[in-house]
Design a protein around this nucleic acid. Structure first.
Lengths: 341, 341
DNA sequence: TTGAAAGCGCTAACAA
DNA sequence: TTGTTAGCGCTTTCAA
């Protein structure tokens, strides 16, 4: 038996399709008695409106596209959770595209999303080239970027104030007496990376800390990446007394490398990460890190999109929401070794 | 300027809408010269077919629903990755619903997904009551369950052979001389939990190992859950020499509890988890665990769905795919303490 | 308060 | 090889 259509309900209730439509959409102009009859028929036939047909008629799909870089990196599930939860509150479903930090998959995602109609798109994938973003969606579909601003297109952004995060991390290290600080960055193309690196350089200068170029490196944002980058760092003659890492995975990798090299943390080496993924509080020693409000990034992105839907058309200068990071001090940082300076 | 429709392209190319449709869908019967003309018009007008209209006409949406229990539990991102990647290969998009292990959100997800048309649904959420699954989708939409069989509805299942996993874990412990083994289970309603627990009991019996009821407990499948359950276990007079945990998060929580109680791992207590989430290899000591082929669960689920699409209608006894787990021995297991028996 | 009818943009018989 | 036409199932004027 095929699924009941609106027309079937109308026939069963002895009214017109238009009236059924009014009832199921909660239009107020229907006579209570008629409404009852329709509702009864809906029940009886187990009628469920076809979202496709509805969308075709209303030009709303009730779906959001969410493009992320790597679902297996614990940063992203938190963002997804924020997006999904908030979207559900507005009766929106989420189409997830995971580019897997891979340009092949990325192109595939873009094509798939581009062919599909969605009410809005949230992009949290640093590698995605700006030119590609335009192809991503129909021109009238609003886009919100997470942790990334765009120079040409007028799109909204939700981001974390990276400069503040880096500054607090460095002030913490400086207060502990550290003056030999290395920076292990992440994906060089990412704006987050660029801002953190620039902030690192600037704040070091402000603090009168000299950082040789060989102490500023970058790595894939994974545990392995951090481990290898840190090993290379330790192999050199002059070893840093502290490391600021692009994310917690790199920081944890660095901690593992230190352990293998017989370097005690935090006694001989302090390490600070970024993100505060759940893992950060669990590893040994627990990681000091610059917490990013990951879930809130997702929440705010949906709220912004929601504004766009409600005619809050992106002005000449579209909204930019900035969230604050917070330094979480745990056990991976300690006073600099006496005489190491 | 509104987006071009198929009709506009037809007019521009001087052909009928049907011909344009044939061209953009790669139907072979179009004259090469006509095709060129149409393609040119498509380019010129920057035409992109409207997926909604197409879906309404073809009754295919090119979308999959994926319901998972908790995206912040590292088990699920791997499943999602497997699903998403494989789906993309078939030009399918993935609608993600995260029930957040919460019945409120679960009901919401079900409603949202139920109103939406998808080509198929994959459910990887143990708590979801069987009765609810029926409401989940239109009756003609194929469903694949991950790690769960159904008694009434004829739905396909992809699962891991839990019995083998538990047996290998216990044989490993037995070979190390352990005879005082506790089991910290997960969500009691989950079939995975039930199967693991039954297997635990059966294998212990086979091995001649007596396990008092107070050594069989359960906990929320989180680090905190494991920590608290283990603490309670340690508070008792007779302490187990080994723990088999429902998942790695619980196992890690138990390890933390042990550490806080001054119990050395693996010297005084061996711990085995389930899953082999990335975290498992990183914590200290690295966790011995029964690896679940998480990504492959997702991959196989999509392949199964794909079969259903191709008329591989679920037979009276719908397909059941079983994947094998594998014991990964790391540093959290060691020979039983002499004299502890 | 309700109904009739014209779409929404595309596909798929069937006919030519 | 191409065109005509009738939907796909719902919404929304407009008129009654």
């Amino acid at each position: 038996m095929r699924a009941a259509r609106l027309e079937d309900v109308a026939a069963a209730a002895g009214v017109s399709p238009a009236t059924v439509s009014r009832v199921i959409n909660g239009r107020p102009v229907v006579a209570p008695e008629t409404r009852e009859r329709v509702l009864a028929a809906v029940q009886r036939l187990n009628f469920r409106p076809d979202s496709l047909a509805r969308s075709l008629a209303t030009r709303r799909t009730g779906a959001l596209g969410l493009v992320i870089a790597d679902i297996t990196n614990p940063f992203y599930p938190e963002v997804v959770r924020g997006v999904e939860q908030t979207a559900a509150g507005y009766d929106l479903s989420v189409l997830l595209y995971d580019t897997a930090e891979d340009s092949e998959r990325e192109a595939q995602s873009i094509r798939l999303l581009g062919e599909r109609r969605v009410d809005g798109v949230i992009v949290c994938a640093a590698r995605l080239p700006e030119a590609r973003l335009a192809e991503l969606v129909r021109p009238d579909t609003p886009i919100v970027l997470i942790n990334r601003r765009l120079s040409h297109l007028p799109v909204c952004t939700v981001e974390v104030d990276q400069e503040t995060g880096v500054r607090e991390a460095l002030l913490h290290l400086a207060a502990l007496g550290h003056r030999r600080i290395a920076f292990i960055g992440g994906p060089v193309a990412s704006q987050v990376q660029q801002r953190r690196l620039a902030a690192f350089r600037r704040e070091c200068r402000n603090l009168g800390i000299f950082t040789p170029g060989r102490w500023i490196v970058d790595a894939p944002p994974t545990i392995i990446g951090g481990k290898e980058a840190a090993s290379a760092l330790f192999a050199r003659d002059a070893r840093p007394g502290a490391i600021l890492a692009y994310n917690d995975l790199i920081a944890i990798g660095a901690a593992i490398a230190a352990q293998e090299a017989g370097i005690a943390i935090p006694a001989e080496l302090s390490i600070i990460g970024h993100d505060d993924i759940p893992l950060a509080g669990v590893v040994h020693p627990a990681l000091t890190t610059v917490r990013q409000p990951m879930r809130d990034l997702g929440v705010q992105a949906v709220l912004l999109l929601q504004q766009c839907f409600n005619g809050g058309a992106p002005a000449r200068t579209p909204p930019l929401i900035q969230l604050a990071p917070r330094l979480i001090v745990r056990a991976s940082t300690a006073p600099a070794q006496a005489g190491s300076e």
